[in-house]
Nucleic acid binder design. Sequence first.
DNA 1: CGTTGCGTTGAATAAGGTCAAATAGAGTGG
DNA 2: CCACTCTATTTGACCTTATTCAACGCAACG
Lengths: 247, 247
Amino acid sequence: MSSQPAYRTINIHQLKTVCSACSLKELCLPMGLSHDEIEHLDQLVYTRKRVKRGEALYRSGDPFNSLYAIRTGFFKSNVLLEDGRDQVTGFFMPGEIMGLDGIGQDRHSCNATALEDGEVCVIPFARLEELSREVRNLQHQFHKVMSREIVRDQGVMMLLGSMRAEERLAAFLLNLSQRFLARGYSPAEFHLRMTREEIGSYLGLKLETVSRLFSKFQEEHLVSVQQKHIRITDVEGLKRLLSQPAA
Amino acid sequence: MSSQPAYRTINIHQLKTVCSACSLKELCLPMGLSHDEIEHLDQLVYTRKRVKRGEALYRSGDPFNSLYAIRTGFFKSNVLLEDGRDQVTGFFMPGEIMGLDGIGQDRHSCNATALEDGEVCVIPFARLEELSREVRNLQHQFHKVMSREIVRDQGVMMLLGSMRAEERLAAFLLNLSQRFLARGYSPAEFHLRMTREEIGSYLGLKLETVSRLFSKFQEEHLVSVQQKHIRITDVEGLKRLLSQPAA
DNA sequence: CGTTGCGTTGAATAAGGTCAAATAGAGTGG
DNA sequence: CCACTCTATTTGACCTTATTCAACGCAACG
């Protein structure tokens, strides 16, 4: 909020935060764009927003204006039914885009909540559409992001609709592992940011079932679990669970 | 395929099939566009494709080139796992768009199959992107279509993740009813184009469970079922099932 | 050092799945 | 038009899986 000199200065903070200099550009909206094209994005994404653990990035019913690209932190999205039932529809990590649900009705249709303190890049949607009318590759890239979200959802439907509890949890762990790997973190050892209840909601299971399954996986030496700390000790074993419907 | 005179002639067949003259334009991609804008679409959508019952419109792995707007007929989409498990991910009716899953990876990620003989409008995707760089409202409309697909998927996750069998079937019937109504058909009486097994797959239930539930609903005078013919006799009753988690 | 939220574990229960048999239709060929 | 198949559907009996209910343990925090 402090006034800035009008002439151009080097601003360390800004340097670190434009898309062209962002370490997540290979995973995020700029994926696949040329350096020049990414610089267009730099004009677009000028606001960032800090969200504290437990705070909402947006809520169901909020007017839709922007998409959010996660810079740091871990988020969940969930839908609430009138009767209080609550379904977690996804977990999101750095480089992933939230808010796509809002475009269709000009209002968000789910809640987005931070599972730990984090920061997101605010992408004003009207300007993204404007820019993507000019930058062909940006347009295409954005369409890919939306399409992948649809494919991700299909995967969740498969999980909820045709897998047994054991398989669901195995698939969940392998999916997280994969995404950590893509971000340069250990695929074998990580910290769950969500509670058993949130995992259960996402997987269509009760929290007790999730807890029991963690214990079972531990007994079978597939993972080592200590509260929220997970170490995958037998990836192949987990994968095998997935390909054997009725093990 | 026969040669046509170069000067403009009135062609009954064409008149009936361009977007601007299509009876589904209020439900389909042209929704909300002005008459002039829809005429742009007329240039885009020049091919149609007939699909017979049981035939695939596209299959998982097929290269992605086009989206498909359903003109007539009823379709399903499903995902197959290596081990043979099969999850129906959606049912589609006239005015709805299929193929959005293919954009992200340049290949389709699910199968689309006709449940009855039907016809679709082929929308070449590269040209749609091109045109939507020029026609702002078309761009926005297309984004809305994708976003609504994401919201629809969230609804299915809610259904699969937190509803009981009874509620799932009630929600399914109410959803179909709604969509028939929007298309000018009776919301109370309709023909199911899919088998019990397909309904079950979509709802994460076994076909026997679906069959039993239909019988139960019939006993409770909520619907009258005769094979694939459904008559909803108590909409409010069905809605009540949904709002009472543990009835 | 008590409180509070989260996680684990056990026993009983219910919901839905599995297996099996009977029936009903739709489509086919004679 | 009829008999014959083949597939879809219904229904019953039994079984498995995950849920429910309840108690207890652990760890963080004021």
